[in-house]
Write a protein that binds this DNA or RNA. Sequence first.
DNA 1: TAAACTTAATAACATATGTTATCGTCACAG
DNA 2: CTGTGACGATAACATATGTTATTAAGTTTA
Lengths: 194, 194
Amino acid sequence: MIFHFRDKFPQLQAFWDKYLPFQQRLQVPAKTILLNEGAVSKNYIFIEKGCVRAFFNNNGDDKTVQFFFENEGLTSFDSFVNNVPSMLTVETLEPSVVYLLPKPYVLQLTEELSREPEFVQMMLRMFAQRQTHYMEEFFSFIRDTPERRYQNLLDKRPHIVQRVPQHYIASYLGVSTVHLSRIKSKLTKGSPHF
Amino acid sequence: MIFHFRDKFPQLQAFWDKYLPFQQRLQVPAKTILLNEGAVSKNYIFIEKGCVRAFFNNNGDDKTVQFFFENEGLTSFDSFVNNVPSMLTVETLEPSVVYLLPKPYVLQLTEELSREPEFVQMMLRMFAQRQTHYMEEFFSFIRDTPERRYQNLLDKRPHIVQRVPQHYIASYLGVSTVHLSRIKSKLTKGSPHF
DNA sequence: TAAACTTAATAACATATGTTATCGTCACAG
DNA sequence: CTGTGACGATAACATATGTTATTAAGTTTA
């Protein structure tokens, strides 16, 4: 879904750095739309400060699928690569500083990379890992109760719960804000802290 | 999730055909496990006759994520590429004839392919399309009611409803067999056929 | 500071869905 | 044929979750 480029493959760093000068710095308030659902993605987005969420809309009620924070990069992968409308909107949740790298430079970057030996195998490994990540999200959605999913969030990614307003968390967990509130109050009663 | 190789890119056919002689033909009854969750995938699987499902297990209660039929290929992508345990089990649903292409040959095939100009860009496009496919499955799971998902199946992939036992359909839709039965009876009452 | 908005908790009620149990049909192995 | 198991429908009940409304505490903005 999201093309998170430098993830886990440090040898890509040098190539990435070479294109730093072509990035456009953008300082934006919260709730700024960086990419609209239905539009074609024209930039790779890198977050220097702040955070964003990716979501899709269904009858005015949106469903959040992922959060991104400092030093993470993203784009709407299929839209970016195949020039099709994005299935997701990307929106800042806090006042943020982001860098945009326009598509022609990204294409040039991948073009250069593709001449490296081993690049194809590395790319396969990268995509396989990304796919596993999204599969795990999907499986958790299917098999875990919302309560359990919230617990996982608290345990493994507490920064999300701390920084992100609760109704976006509810939208990510797949429940109403009311029910998330119930879950929280239930957990608090179960394990009081003095 | 699944590495569906020849999908939509006919220029790959020639490369694929070259490796046909190395495939192992297998004739198996229904309910044969072709790949076990937790095991490392060692083959690319191609279905000549019959059908299979991919599922993961949760406390003995399994969740089906995809069905495959004649002339479709699959493997547990991350497991195959990165030598990690598969998150999915692959099992035949009918007596089937499948071909297995062992991993060393697949590696050799991608190695050959990677020397083709344009291959990297094509691979990017392929993966982007695959990802979109899985995103659509995920989004449908989140936003559509089970009833609606069943209707979609009837409308767009009726062969699945016809060939696959109902409890696997229920497992795919994310509901109990009882509830799928309710859905069906509700739909039948809504539109009687003489 | 006041007004407007955002965020969150809670209650009351409605509905969707799960669980368990029972029954009927059908296919198939003995 | 007959027993056994797979498959599916249905009823009765339990539970999880959604919806709507109300209240209240913080934030932002004028």
